[in-house]
């Protein structure tokens, strides 16, 4: 499961990073190898239907985990896990375009998605641009789309893209249903997070454009901050504006105030600057060891402004 990854195997870092060092300290175990946790795993089962997978998972919430690409399981498996539920038998692999948009199977790898023809021109090709910046090909060849959504690392470029693309997450938690992506990430899973079976992207007019900015320390780094904007260019203005910022260091969120300031307006340089400064003000920026709060606000301003300039067809 998972797209990008964790901190060299020290689990739960992302959840507590804002709380400082103390919570992450594992006394006397600097450099622990994960062989002990991984060797607790006794079996891997491969169900063929979502309901079978769900029953297995809910029967033993502590002792089981869903297995997608497996990256995050290798890096983070808690020692309580004895059974992995391999999702590759569910047949949820592949990308198809239909009347309603694009359907992406949860077990599709990020590389497969990157190369899938339906996304090449979707919203101006923004997904291609985003995916090219996720980690390296070595990880994109393993990580799955479903895993990326399930793990939802705070710096996730994939979750950011889903947000601005109004994706729906197809889940199974006793029954199949579709959840809008923002709602999915806003809702705390009660006991067991639902099984993700796919991602659906709505149909878009050919006027849809998207832009993405990522700030990292190196070319294959996770984002210190990332942002994306999508809008439909119609005569005289832009509609259906979506602006989201991630790695703040929290998971990406849309910025409704910034979106509203642009909705229906022409995309001028001045307007872009105004929207960007709203974004910088409202973004939930905080400090972690990679960047300060104020620097993240700066990056938000610059990133959103550059995205909007690109939407307007300017080079920034």
């Amino acid at each position: 499961m998972g797209n990008t990854r964790g901190f060299g195997g020290r689990g739960r870092r992302t959840l507590v990073s804002a709380l400082g060092d103390r919570n992450n300290r594992r006394e006397g175990l600097e450099g622990v190898v994960r062989v002990v946790e991984l060797h607790q795993i006794q079996s891997i089962v491969r169900p063929t239907t979502p309901s079978e997978a769900w029953s297995l998972r809910t029967a033993q919430p502590e002792a089981t985990r869903f297995l997608g690409g497996g990256i995050d399981l290798v890096l983070y498996t808690p020692g309580t896990v004895t059974t992995l539920i391999d999702l590759s038998g569910l047949g949820r692999q592949g990308v198809t375009a239909d009347r309603d948009g694009v359907a992406i199977g949860a077990e599709t790898t990020l590389s497969e998605l990157l190369e899938a023809s339906p996304i090449a021109s979707y919203a101006g090709g923004i997904l291609v641009e985003v995916l090219r910046h996720v980690a390296s090909p070595l990880q994109r060849n393993v990580a799955t789309v479903g895993g990326a959504a399930a793990r939802a690392h705070p710096w996730s470029d994939v979750v950011l893209a889903m947000l601005v693309l109004d994706a729906e997450i197809e889940v199974f938690d006793g029954a199949s249903r579709s959840v809008p992506v923002a709602e999915f990430f806003a809702t705390q899973a009660k006991n067991v997070a639902p099984l993700i079976t796919g991602i659906r992207l709505p149909k878009r007019p050919s006027t849809a454009r998207g832009a993405f900015e990522k700030f990292g320390r190196t070319g294959s780094d996770v984002a210190l901050l990332n942002c994306a904007c999508v809008a439909d260019a119609v005569d005289g203005g832009v509609r259906n504006v979506r602006i989201a910022v991630g790695g703040t260091p929290s998971l990406a969120r849309r910025l409704p105030e910034a979106e509203a300031a642009l909705e229906g307006e022409p995309l001028s340089t001045a307007r872009a600057a105004e929207v960007a400064s709203i974004a910088a003000r409202v973004v939930d920026a905080r400090e972690d060891r990679r960047a300060s709060e104020s620097y993240r606000r700066t990056l938000t301003e610059v990133g959103v402004r550059r995205c909007l300039a690109r939407l307007a067809g300017e080079d920034a």
Binding site: G6, G8, G219, R289, R290
Partner: peptide, 24 residues
């Protein structure tokens, strides 16, 4: 190498200590 206020290395991994790759 980032050090905490207690002297602990906070980024002991190639994930978080960034050496240049081919893109850099």
């Amino acid at each position: 190498m980032l050090l905490s206020s207690t002297g602990r290395v906070r980024n002991p991994s190639l994930f978080d200590y960034k050496i240049p790759g081919a893109l850099d």
